[in-house]
Design a protein around this nucleic acid. Sequence first.
DNA 1: CATTATTTTATCACGCAGTTATAATGGTAA
DNA 2: TTACCATTATAACTGCGTGATAAAATAATG
Lengths: 216, 216
Amino acid sequence: MAEKEISKAVIARLPRYYRYLGELMEDGVERISSNDLSVRMRVTASQIRQDLNNFGGFGQQGYGYNVKYLYTEIAKILGIDRQHSLIIIGAGNLGQAIANYANFEKRGFLIKGMFDINPRLIGLVVRGIEIRSVDDLEQFVKDNDVQIAALTIPKTKAPEIADRLVKAGIKAIWNFAHTDLSVPDDVVVENVHLSESLMRLSYRVCSMQDKTGQEE
Amino acid sequence: MAEKEISKAVIARLPRYYRYLGELMEDGVERISSNDLSVRMRVTASQIRQDLNNFGGFGQQGYGYNVKYLYTEIAKILGIDRQHSLIIIGAGNLGQAIANYANFEKRGFLIKGMFDINPRLIGLVVRGIEIRSVDDLEQFVKDNDVQIAALTIPKTKAPEIADRLVKAGIKAIWNFAHTDLSVPDDVVVENVHLSESLMRLSYRVCSMQDKTGQEE
DNA sequence: CATTATTTTATCACGCAGTTATAATGGTAA
DNA sequence: TTACCATTATAACTGCGTGATAAAATAATG
């Protein structure tokens, strides 16, 4: 089926295309050329065409790209045309922030459950989702055919929970813990290391100061 | 001063080196070779040496790298040896999650204030930080010499707030809103688009299924 | 203490992948 | 039917990652 491998860089850009196309749809725009889109998105038109061509000719010469069609095609490629069941482990602020973000459900990510070790939180209901004890984790994952687990817990607990999730048959881990997880090859780990993001920002702030403040 | 430009790819890897070196320090390790580190971090030793050499010879032949020295040097490069003042705009779950994460303060990111438009939240105190009205934003930024603003607000409000921050003299925006911000060249924007991260995860889950489930 | 073997970095060079630019093709619209 | 537009396909370029080699320091040995 999948003949040629799509590069990571291309995949990383697709969600952004998807977002812009969604906005264009809301504005009632029916078609768009790679040139117009490149101006809006501040990337080269060449890159847009090259990227989209990885998945076959979505565009038409002399016409451009059909916004609605391209939007749904990208959704298919990203796999957000179907539904994914998700659980959140760690019902702190970050876990609750994710639970409360309504758009995830619109994109087909159904939050099936939340888990925590804190007895005070267990039993509480966030956005219609009950917070359960992590003791029930394995059973819940199996019973509800959960694909994705968001890990919003301290780094010390993360490896153990990850192991348990893998054994319970989870497909992917959305990892917010500040550590690397080692899992089998067929389990996907997507890291969101906020502290690293903040450090990159710090670097850029400092190098900007060096650049602008070099006259003295 | 800064003769050669450091590539983005190298900078992106530095925080991860920093994290591993910190753990080595905690374990009391005094020195490490690029080979040993490469095994732990699952990258090539060549890449580690190449990366570190961008900033001058931190290592010594026959000895390796001094963990403590390298740790502090990377901190200098990333600019986390000095202090940055930070405010959080949007005191919802995500904003509070950031405020509650103690390690940021350890890295020199001082949270000076939090802001919201919700009258119910204004006046509350989170981790010793009072939540203020966004009306006071400009004045606060100027009075407290705030460098960085974390934007944890809905995308509809983000552009307006970003403009106001820029006018007030902010140096960098840590943007969690699901939109791109347009700011002058000398203002840094670091995006954390969680929905895009989740879509990339979705793609990888689906392509994993294609790979493993192709026997039928 | 001199000498040699070993360790390990710094530097160089190559190849591949990702990006941008150009040429060729086909559709649109007047 | 023709001029124009915008894609697809191809080519050139740039930059990143990897492996190989030379240089330098450490550790071992007599």
